[in-house]
Each structure stands twice: as C-alpha cells, then as structure tokens.
Amino acid sequence: MKASRFFKGLYVSLVLLFLYLPILTLIVYSFNASKSRAKWDGFTFDWYLALFQNEEILKALYVTLAVAALAALIATVIGTLGAIGLFAMRRGPRTLFLSMANLSMLTPDIVIGVSLMILFLFAKLPLGFWTMLLAHVSFNVPYVLFSVLPKLKQMNAHAYEAALDLGATPWQALVKILLPEILPGVVSGLILSFTLSLDDFVISFFTTSEVQNLSILIYSMARLGINPTINALSTLLFVAVMALLLLVNRRSSILER
C-alpha cells in the first residue's frame, strides 16, 4: 500500500513538473545576464529595467487592462439585463434568444475573430481600440448571461412583482430586490469576463490593427525568437496570477468557514 502511494505521488509530481518546468525555466532565465540560452552569465535585473522602459509593452499593458475592464463592465450590464429579460419570457422566445448565446460560445475563436473583422471592415469602422472593445464585449456577454441565469432560477419568481405592488418603481425593484439576489452570479460573470478578456489573443488579433494588447505584442515578439524581456514580463504576470489566485482562494476559504 505504501509503495502504491509513493507511486501515485511520484506520478502526480511528474505531471506537475511537466506543467511547471517551462514556466520555471522562463523565470530563471529572466534573471540571466546573458542573452543566450546556453550559458548563465550571472544574476541581473536588467531585463526588468528594460521592461519598464519599453513604452510599447507599457502601452500594451494599458490597452489590455482598459479593454478588459471596460468590456467586463459593459458585458456584465448587458448580460445581466439580458438574463433578467429572458427569464421573464415564455419558453419559445427564450429558447430562441438563448440559442444566440449558445451559438456565440460554440463558434471557434478564430471564426468569431474573422467574422467580426469582416463586419467592422464592412461597416467601414477603422480597426483599433474600439473595435477590439466591441469584440470583447460580444464574446463576454454569453458568459455573464449563463452565470446570472441560474441565480434567477433559484430566487422567488414573484419577489419583483411584489415589490412593484408595494409601490416600488421598476428601477427600485430592480436595484433593491432583484440585484441583491443575483449578485453572486453577476460578480462571477464580471470576473470571468475580465479574465477572458485579459487572456484573449485570437479574437483581438483579428479585430485590431496597430493598437496591441499584451497577447498580440507577445505573439509578434515571440515570432522573432527568444527575447529576455518577454521572460521578465512572463515572470511578473505569473507572480500576479499566483497572488490573485491565492487571494481568491483564501477569501473563499474564509467565507466557507
């Protein structure tokens, strides 16, 4: 029994090693003074300095965060209202409108990307920040919709009408009665949208031209080969993701208690 436990531990460790070795190598090399991979020339922070002096990278970081934040907010409003509206509908129209969200989620990213590119160029919209934002909102909306809908199913269907009967305006009933009930779904939709936007490459790639987000910048840099500045950038992003996950994890484990 002990041997089998050792074997299981070993196996899981090996798989984890496979998952982390590349990331760890990147981190180590981000401190390597030599630009070449083959040798270690001593410890340096030069690549980090270069990173913070590289305006292209800083601009891409700004674009990434701005698009992700705006897209998440807009998608959350549209998706939440959409979920509330769809929930009140009869089965027929609801299925019809839900299938639009399903279609969007089933469409491969590359097809969403090229089809939106056709649309924007067809409508004579210049590709850039705003078209990227429109595209991000579009692929985020279904995710918000599907995280809010289950919460609506859980709540009392008549609470909203009761509020109206008791003299609340529709706006008051929405904000004071409906929203608190579905808030967890709204928040998880918001977070999901934000992370999907941060990570997106394919759809952004087709819906912008000169304005680059981090993914596009990394892609264009990586196509030219190894660049130690990307290693530094990866290390910082990795640390940021770790910190965020630990934070979320700790918060949720505190809440569970």
Binding site: I78, L81, G82, I84, A88, F97, I118, L119, A157, E161
Partner: peptide, 26 residues
Amino acid sequence: MKTKGFAAPYVVWMLLFTIAPILLVL
C-alpha cells in the same frame, strides 16, 4: 414578470455582433 424589455440591449447586441457577422461569413 414585467421585465422582458430588459433583454432588449442583449438581443440587439447579439444580433449585431454575433448573428450579423456569421451571416456575413455565410
């Protein structure tokens, strides 16, 4: 519930940015 109208922005958005692009591809 009298909240069906809330879905209007969603429906318009999906028609414009999901259905229309796919129709263009077609």
